[in-house]
Amino acid sequence: MSTYYKPEDLKKFGNITEFDKELGDKFFDYYGEVFKEGALTTREKSLIALAVSHAVQCPYCIDAYTSDTIEKGCTEEQLMEAVHVAAAIRGGASLVHGVQMMEKTKKILM
């Protein structure tokens, strides 16, 4: 079956430099720097990446950061809590717009 998303494409991510080496290299250098131990630990960064992966619904990133967080010693509970953070922010982001809806409603109704 042919699909838009193919798991093996994740391993080919590095090949995007093929069409534009300079920008591709710059991106990967930046990416590498971002995930280095800093004020946040590499594990904290990996958990944030896992949560963001769910928020942007990227199957490649979910695949990669599920393995990465587990490799870094996270438990199933920690992974799921990170996903709930993403879900809460996404849900909250929808819901908070309800304020706009309510204000508009109140304005136009007698």
Partner: peptide, 17 residues
Amino acid sequence: NPTGAMLPGPQEVLKAD
């Protein structure tokens, strides 16, 4: 040792946990 199909993370981090 990893309890599944993945590589282990860094020793120092796991040791602290």
